[in-house]
């Protein structure tokens, strides 16, 4: 004990300097957005390097479950492919490009996932060298995960859909009624669909899919099912509770997708930019 106290006293100037330096850097981060983004980029690289080996180790123990999940996903995709081919043959539209052609994807692994905070962030093990860039959409085997926020060389941080800052364009599968899906911060498998006018019929069990209004995700990806709904206090709109099909607390392999037509679409939406 005496030894520790002596060491602290001997180096008190250096310890004070370090503490104040950390305080200064923290101040620098809060004072300017530019510094904050640079500091968070550096911390992303550091935490990515730390979490990556742990995650790889944990990954070995989960291989069994992962295989089952992949088989299920393959099955599902095969079914989709067969169905799509059938439709194409029926309608003789082979030459027309599918809307999915506009998207390219990069597979990645989740190395850190949070779902208990108000603004949850996911880290993935692919970064700018793997052509991941900010604003790419991220989807999992069962649905959407989030949007890429920042990238370092080998890692990227993703704003989870369980992030109160994020709103996702969503619609009913059966009709073309659009609304925005957001997270209220309580349960990681419940989200809120708002801006749906009361003139539209809503039933418990209705399927909600991504709408094509945002350029982050392809249209029609399954999001979840309606479990509850009520009119807002002001009336005129529904607040719809949606249960996600994707288990956001158990994420492993994901795909970052980018829309090749994104800049073109955004130039049309915001012509002044």
């Amino acid at each position: 004990m005496q030894w520790i106290l002596n060491a602290i006293l001997r180096n008190k100037n250096f310890i004070l300097f370090l503490l104040l330096l950390i305080l200064g850097l923290f101040f620098s981060g809060t004072q300017s957005g530019y510094h904050q983004s640079k500091i968070s980029q550096a911390s992303l690289a550091v935490s990515g390097t730390i979490f990556s080996p742990f995650n790889q180790m944990r990954g070995y123990f989960g291989l069994n479950d992962l295989n089952i999940e992949l088989i299920q996903e393959n099955n599902h995709l095969k079914k989709q492919l067969i169905e799509q081919n059938k439709i194409l043959k029926e309608t003789q539209l082979e030459n027309k490009p599918s809307p999915l052609d506009a998207f390219s994807s990069v597979p990645a692994h989740v190395i850190r996932n949070s779902f208990t905070k108000a603004k949850n962030i996911i880290l993935i093990d692919k970064g700018s060298t793997d052509s991941i860039h900010p604003d790419m959409g991220v989807v999992g085997p069962k649905g959407i995960i989030g949007i890429v926020n920042q990238t370092s060389k080998n890692f990227a941080s993703v704003l989870s859909i369980l992030n109160q800052d994020l709103k996702i364009n969503a619609r009913f599968k059966s009709s073309n009624v659009f609304g925005s899906l957001s997270w209220r911060g309580n349960s990681p498998n419940k989200m809120l669909l708002s801006d749906i006018s009361v003139i539209n019929p809503v039933q418990i069990g209705d399927t909600i899919v991504t709408g094509g209004m945002s350029s982050y995700f392809p249209e029609g990806i399954l999001l979840g099912f309606v479990t509850d709904f009520e009119q807002t206090e002001k009336g005129g709109y529904y607040e719809i509770e949606v249960e996600l099909v994707n288990n956001m607390t158990d994420l492993s392999h994901v795909y970052a997708i980018s829309n090749k037509n994104k800049t073109e679409i955004e130039a049309l939406i915001n012509p002044e930019k």
């Binding site: 104040l20 200064g24 101040f27």
Partner: peptide
């Protein structure tokens, strides 16, 4: 002296709206 350096730098950063440059430079 280290405390003085930090205080002077921080005051200047707050007055000139700079992002911690004066604080860290003065402290160092």
């Amino acid at each position: 002296f280290i405390l003085i350096g930090f205080a002077v730098g921080l005051t200047l950063d707050l007055l000139t709206q700079t992002a911690g440059g004066h604080t860290i430079a003065s402290l160092s």
